[in-house]
């Protein structure tokens, strides 16, 4: 019978119409993201040993860091800069970090108004937000 398929399709639509909602009401309800989600980066300054592994693993030269030697002749992180405009968010930097000082974080609301806001000073960001868990 012509039209049987149409009616069947409408039947499915009606069945789903009375079923439970599957959409999230995003700005009101924040999603609970898994801990592996790499939507932002966070640095724990004290853990960093300035080994430069993250900068070498990065495919796009996003990371630039400088260090200085302290009294005990140990390297201490001085500046840590990320140019996130070039970042692929591939997470390779966090993966190679030997001390897990650099981590992926789940803040995903990264929209900005000015291009210069894409230059992240990771030390300042960490101080502003408190330590990364």
């Amino acid at each position: 019978m012509f039209g049987k398929g149409l009616l069947q399709g409408l039947g499915i639509t009606f069945k789903r119409m009375v079923g439970p909602n599957i959409t999230e009401f995003y700005p009101e309800e924040k999603p609970n993201l898994p801990t592996r989600v790499r939507s932002s980066m966070g640095l724990e300054r004290d853990k960093c040993i300035s080994c430069n592994m993250c900068a070498m693993a990065c495919p796009n030269s996003v990371i630039k860091l400088t260090s200085e030697k302290n009294e005990a002749n140990k390297k201490v992180l001085k500046t840590y800069h990320m140019d996130v405009g070039r970042c692929l968010f591939c997470g390779m930097c966090a993966e190679v970090c030997p001390t897990k000082a650099l981590k992926v974080t789940q803040e995903f609301e990264n929209a900005i108004y000015e291009p210069e806001d894409m230059q992240w000073d990771m030390i300042k960001r960490a101080e502003r937000k408190g330590k990364v868990e």
């Binding site: 993201l33 898994p34 989600v37 790499r38 997470g91 390779m92 992926v104």
Partner: peptide, 27 residues
């Protein structure tokens, strides 16, 4: 019909996300 297939694809994206940390460019 579009929304039905995309609804189910979301579940696969969730599985990517919990394993690798990304939904589309999984790496």
């Amino acid at each position: 019909a579009w929304s039905y297939a995309f609804r189910d694809r979301e579940r696969i994206c969730d599985m990517y996300e919990m394993t690798a940390g990304s939904r589309l460019t999984v790496n």
